[in-house]
Amino acid sequence: GIPATNLSRVAGLEKQLAIELKVKQGAENMIQTYSNGSTKDRKLLLTAQQMLQDSKTKIDIIRMQLRRALQ
Rank of each mutant, 00 (worst) to 15 (best):
D60V: 12
Q65E: 12
A18V: 06
A48V: 03
T47G: 07
S8A: 13
L21H: 02
V23H: 07
Y34R: 02
Q65F: 05
L45E: 02
I61T: 08
D41L: 03
T47P: 02
V23G: 02
R42N: 12
R68N: 09
K40G: 08
A48N: 01
R63G: 02
N6K: 07
M64A: 11
A11I: 10
Q65H: 06
G37M: 05
L7F: 02
T57L: 11
T33G: 06
M64Y: 07
E20K: 02
Q53W: 05
A4F: 01
T57H: 13
T57F: 07
S38Q: 09
L17G: 00
G26F: 15
S35V: 09
T5G: 12
I31S: 01
V10D: 01
I19F: 11
R9D: 09
S8Y: 05
S55E: 00
P3W: 03
L21F: 04
Q16M: 13
L7M: 12
Q49W: 14
D41G: 03
K22I: 08
G26D: 15
Q16N: 04
Y34P: 01
I61Y: 11
K58I: 04
Y34S: 03
I31V: 08
G12K: 15
N36S: 14
A48Q: 02
Q50V: 06
S55C: 13
G26T: 15
R68D: 11
T5R: 06
Q16E: 07
K24Y: 14
Q65R: 06
E14L: 15
N6C: 15
T57P: 01
A4H: 08
K22T: 06
A69Y: 08
T39H: 08
A4Y: 01
T39M: 09
Q71H: 10
Q71V: 08
R9C: 15
D60H: 14
G26M: 15
Q25W: 07
L66D: 00
S8D: 13
L52S: 01
I31C: 05
S55T: 09
S35H: 09
L7W: 02
D60M: 14
A4N: 13
G26A: 13
R9V: 12
L44C: 11
G1M: 08
S35Q: 11
P3M: 06
S8L: 09
L46R: 10
S35Y: 13
D60C: 15
K40W: 06
R68T: 09
Q32C: 13
K40D: 07
I59L: 04
D60Y: 14
G12N: 14
R67N: 05
A48W: 10
K22H: 05
A18H: 05
L52P: 00
R42V: 13
L70Y: 09
V23S: 04
R9E: 13
G37N: 09
R42S: 14
L21M: 11
E14I: 15
A11F: 05
G1R: 09
K22L: 12
Q49H: 07
K40S: 10
I59Q: 00
M30T: 03
L13T: 00
T33F: 13
A4L: 03
L13F: 03
G1Y: 06
K58N: 04
R68M: 13
K22N: 05
R42T: 11
A11R: 11
E28S: 02
L46F: 06
S55Q: 05
R63Q: 07
G1P: 10
N6P: 06
A18Y: 07
R9Y: 15
I19T: 07
M51V: 07
Q49S: 03
K22W: 06
Q32L: 11
L7K: 12
D60I: 14
I19K: 10
N29C: 15
A11G: 04
N29E: 14
G37A: 07
E14G: 04
Q49M: 11
M64C: 14
V10H: 02
I61H: 10
Q71E: 09
A27F: 14
N29H: 14
L17K: 00
S38H: 08
N6F: 02
M64G: 07
Q71D: 12
G26E: 15
Q32T: 07
I59T: 01
Q16P: 00
I2E: 08
I59G: 00
I19D: 11
Q49P: 00
L21V: 04
L44R: 07
T5C: 15
Q32G: 04
I61A: 09
L46V: 09
S38L: 11
L46M: 09
I61M: 13
K56A: 05
Y34K: 02
R63W: 08
K43F: 11
M30W: 05
L46E: 13
N29K: 14
Q16Y: 04
S38R: 04
K22Y: 04
R63Y: 11
Q53D: 06
A4S: 09
T39C: 14
A18W: 07
E14V: 15
N29V: 11
L44Y: 05
G37Y: 01
E28G: 01
L13V: 01
P3T: 07
K56E: 10
A18I: 07
D54G: 04
Q32S: 11
L52Y: 06
I31D: 00
K43T: 11
M51A: 07
D60A: 15
I19Y: 10
R9F: 12
